[in-house]
């Protein structure tokens, strides 16, 4: 399978199953499009007719392009066959270790963000804080089920984790004790809205947190529209100076500023550029996922505008990088040269198998977005994963599990997509959240184009 598209002056051909990327001129672009379905002589006839006015396109030239395509095919770099399907169905028998836990240390929040998937931090349940004892057991559970893996990731999540800060600090101290005993290395991370950031938190985070995720939606009027305090005030002016101080004190590394865009700001690149103008360089901006009935829900009519925005973002990122003041956009981070192997590309994020979320009461869920839905309870940190049938279901939830993905060129980049989004959109973790797929495909097209541009390849026309 191949995918052909034109973007920013480049004619790009992605060979799906080899991972090869080609940049071609208009003649080669047309020849490749016909190659698998049309006899060579007919391709020659059509090309000579189409390019009749161009002196450099003659029969010998077209046949030379056909030869080049044949050579690439023989080398496995074009029209490569899908040889991974059987591999995908061995995944159920694969033994997995647990690599990461998301600790819900606080099911409560000091903001009331309208679009919060966690229902203002409560996850459709009661307000709660994780006790040190539950958190300690969670770390013990992770160590015990991590096999020979050394690096273990633990994210302090909520709600707002800074509302249970003393427990966070005690758990980090406990983890540091245990890692020496068990030859492990904890990489602690923190996801925060920033309201409670102060010098003490910043100093501790800089010392102990491998990464921090800072929630900011962009321009003040956009951010304050939906991210409001419990007293119904905007939070932008409270958090931005704190984020700037934190990022500066971390040397500009080990953080992401992460926003959500909605129907209210389909011009979301302006929010990303605003973040960059505030001095932040590690950026992420996600489309809101919610019921279509919500006033801030993205609509079908928004899609063309969103596609255009992703293209604007890509070309502006190339320009800014050349000018010496580039920034990183999470979804355009694409390592084509030494990126993930085919096993990782098929198996996806690891939810429900290598990654679990832990509630304040010690209950285990496939990921933070399933917390509160009892059907997806997997066990607890004392007894471990008891719902092994559900774990097997997540093991098999991969790039080859969804019939709707069969003809999608992007499935080895999304690994079949987010199980939680699929579940919330269709009622099944093997469903397809089509709106998200359309945005994902556009982002991958842009990300590949950036790689092509940064490799110094000539434009196609």
């Amino acid at each position: 399978m191949i995918h052909q598209y034109k973007l920013n002056g480049y004619n790009i051909v992605l060979d799906v199953y080899s991972g090869s990327v080609h940049v071609v001129d208009p003649l080669a672009y047309d020849v490749i499009a016909l190659y698998e379905t049309t006899p060579a002589d007919e391709i020659v006839r059509q090309m000579l007719e189409k390019y009749a006015g161009q002196p450099d396109v003659n029969e010998a030239e077209v046949r030379e392009v056909l030869d080049s395509v044949e050579q690439l095919k023989a080398a496995g770099k074009l029209f490569a066959p899908d040889q991974y399907e059987n591999m995908a169905f061995d995944f159920k028998n694969r033994s997995t270790v647990i690599k990461a836990l998301c600790l819900h240390v606080a099911h409560t929040c000091n903001l009331t963000c309208s679009y919060c998937f966690a229902s203002q931090g409560k996850y459709q349940g009661e307000r709660a804080l994780m006790s040190f004892e539950v958190g300690k057991q969670a770390l013990d559970f992770l160590i015990a089920h991590s096999g020979s893996r050394r690096n273990l990731e633990v994210d302090f999540f909520g709600g707002e984790p800074l509302m249970n800060w003393d427990v966070v600090k005690r758990l980090v101290a406990y983890g540091r004790e245990q890692e020496k005993i068990h030859n492990k290395k904890f990489r602690f991370t923190l996801t925060t809205n920033g309201v409670l950031l102060d010098d003490e938190v910043i100093e501790f985070a800089n010392r102990e947190m491998h990464n921090v995720v800072l929630s900011l939606d962009g321009r003040k009027e956009i951010h304050d529209r939906l991210r409001r305090t419990v007293n119904d005030k905007g939070s932008y002016d409270i958090i931005v100076p704190k984020f700037q101080k934190l990022v500066e004190s971390r040397g500009g590394q080990g953080y992401y500023v992460r926003g959500t865009f909605t129907h209210a700001n389909v011009d979301f690149t302006n929010d990303i550029f605003h973040m960059a103008d505030l001095g932040f360089t590690e950026l992420s901006m996600e489309p809101v996922v919610c019921s279509p009935d919500e006033p801030y829900a993205l609509t079908e009519e928004d899609l063309p505008k969103l596609f255009e925005q992703y293209e604007i973002l890509a070309t502006e990122m190339i320009r800014r990088k050349k000018a010496g003041h580039g920034f990183t956009f999470y979804h355009y981070m694409l390592d084509l040269k030494s990126g993930p192997c085919i096993y990782k590309r098929i198996s996806g994020c690891g939810s429900g198998t290598e990654y679990l979320a832990v509630t304040p009461w010690g209950e285990l869920y496939p990921c933070h977005q399933f917390v509160g839905d009892e059907k997806y309870s997997m066990g607890d940190v004392w007894r471990g994963v008891t719902n092994t049938a559900l774990r097997d279901e997540f093991k098999m939830c991969n790039a080859y599990a969804r019939p709707d993905c069969k003809d999608c060129w992007a499935r080895l980049y999304c690994s079949g997509g987010c199980a939680a989004n699929a579940y919330h959109a269709t009622g099944s973790i093997r469903g397809v959240y089509d709106y998200g797929c359309q945005l994902f495909r556009k982002r991958i097209e842009c990300a590949i184009m950036i790689q092509v541009a940064e490799a110094g390849m000539s434009k196609s026309e």
């Binding site: 080899s18 496995g76 490569a80 991974y84 270790v97 990731e153 085919i342």
Partner: peptide, 24 residues
Amino acid sequence: NRIQTLDTRDLAQSAQGCGECQTQ
């Protein structure tokens, strides 16, 4: 050149899986 090819990891070769990647 009519066809330029980017230097990319060969996925078929990558089938020849250490499992050390994070939840690359």
